[in-house]
Nucleic acid binder design. Structure first.
Lengths: 205, 205
DNA sequence: CGGATTATTGACCAAACGGTCAGGATCAGG
DNA sequence: CCTGATCCTGACCGTTTGGTCAATAATCCG
């Protein structure tokens, strides 16, 4: 992804590009691509607007960089599923890892939610390419486990969708979740127990 | 919701307000509140921009009206759960009804998704009020069924979240779903079978 | 028909926004 | 300490956008 022929970043470049991406994460995850302004990003980063545009060509450039930078981290838990491990344990661990990501990185979750909602103008290539490959590899593992009778038979791809949707729901729709639950609840802890139960019942052969 | 002291709408008012709300649904569900422009709405409605603002005070007014108008329809399936019916049948019917709504009304689903993502600036009152009441009533029914041993014990509110998230996922993230599945799939039909299986296994006592 | 109400629009405005640029400040290396 | 490269900013520009308004057209109703 990073151009190897490009000159290495100076200390200041490193720091400021990082500040900008952090500010942009705040802005984009709160307001979406069109809703966030460069001024907002600059303020969040503690820089001036022209200075932000000194480090990035445009708002779109920041957005694209942010998405591609975070995508690997976002997809990592699925790649940590161990094909040699115990099927149920591996899936349950993936579910809990994904839920923890929603709890600890809600901004990232919302960033991707906005992007997909919008029709993924910056991610279409990846959706049909890299992402699909990663999913296909996981699906193969799941199907093997199912045909070995070590996991109940369900449509693997929709199993994955269910994990994505339920875990990310607690980040993307956190306001709704909290409004419905009322005070005195720990949404993520409760969700952890609920999902553990759900997937155990669904996937135990 | 509708002010009864207000004069009744003329035929033309009726028709044009409707056209505008239809156009606004297109625009808002595709681009979000800030992403959609009044011009866009006007074009989609086949009216001029000033004419749109003759019928509504502002873009926010259109958005607010649209949300409150559609909320009842969006929440209706949950209120159709029959406390006297067979527990599993009632829940499964609700799940399928919600999935059909995602298939048939994806724009509405995305409209609400954007609004909640954004922090629900126009719906906060309803989230903690009317919505919570409706959920509470359903939760009571579910809890009764569970204590009667006619439904497996799970946290009822998180059960509801799971239904919302999984069914709406197929509308809100349709692009991702289609990209991952590839061609030759009917996402909603497959999802229907998957969810039927999932909730049967989860909720059978 | 005729007058009053309602509907519609082109022209316009101010603010917000994405982005540019010339010039000055700062910093790294010799 | 000098010099060139990097870094930073105030002022500015063109466009888009939400919204207004005066004037015109269509409709309604007695």
């Amino acid at each position: 992804m990073t151009d190897p022929s490009a000159p290495p970043l100076t200390r200041i470049q490193q720091k400021n590009r990082d500040l900008i991406l952090q500010g942009a994460l705040d802005a984009f995850s709160a307001n979406g691509l069109r809703g966030a302004t460069i001024d907002q990003i600059a303020r969040a980063a503690g820089l001036s607007k022209p200075n932000v545009l000194y480090y990035f060509d445009s708002k779109d450039d920041i957005h694209k960089t942010l998405l591609t930078t975070l995508l690997d981290m976002w997809l990592a838990p699925m790649q940590r599923i161990n094909p040699q491990g115990d099927p149920l344990t591996e899936v349950l661990r993936y579910v809990q890892a994904k839920l923890r990501m929603s709890r600890d990185y809600p901004r990232e979750s919302r960033l991707f939610a906005y992007e997909i909602l919008q029709g993924a103008p910056h991610l279409t290539a990846i959706l049909g390419g890299g992402l699909r490959d990663i999913v296909d590899r996981t699906v193969e593992v799941l199907e093997r486990w199912m045909s070995e009778g070590r996991l109940a038979r369900v449509e693997p791809r929709h199993l994955i969708f269910s994990i994505w949707s339920m875990t990310q729901h607690y980040a993307d729709f956190e306001i709704q979740v909290r409004a419905v639950l009322g005070p005195g609840h720990d949404p993520f802890a409760e969700a952890g127990a609920f999902l553990e139960d759900l997937y155990r019942k669904l996937l135990t052969p």
